[in-house]
Amino acid sequence: MAHVLVVDDSSVARDVVAGFLTRNGFDVATANDGREGLAALRGDPAIRLVVSDVNMPNMDGITMAEKVRAELGNQKVRIVMLTTENNSLLRERGKAAGVSGWIVKPFRGDAVLAPFRAYCGLV
Rank of each mutant, 00 (worst) to 15 (best):
M1W: 02
M1F: 04
V4A: 05
L5C: 10
L5G: 07
D8S: 06
S11I: 14
V12Y: 12
D15P: 03
V16A: 01
V17C: 02
G19P: 03
F20G: 00
R23S: 13
N24V: 08
F26G: 07
D27H: 13
A31F: 01
A31T: 06
N32Q: 13
N32W: 08
A39H: 08
A40R: 01
A40H: 02
R42N: 12
D44K: 02
P45L: 08
A46V: 10
I47R: 00
I47H: 02
L49G: 07
L49M: 08
V50R: 00
V50E: 09
S52R: 01
D53R: 00
N55G: 12
M56K: 03
M56G: 07
M56C: 09
N58D: 14
M59E: 13
G61L: 02
A65T: 10
V68A: 12
A70N: 14
E71D: 15
E71I: 02
G73E: 09
N74Q: 11
K76R: 09
K76Q: 14
V77S: 08
V80F: 02
L82C: 08
L82F: 06
T83Y: 00
T83E: 03
L89T: 15
R91C: 12
R93Y: 06
A97K: 01
S100T: 15
W102C: 12
I103P: 00
I103R: 00
V104G: 02
V104Y: 01
R108N: 10
F116I: 10
F116H: 06
R117H: 07
R117W: 02
R117L: 04
A118R: 09
Y119A: 14
Y119M: 11
Y119G: 05
G121L: 04
G121I: 05
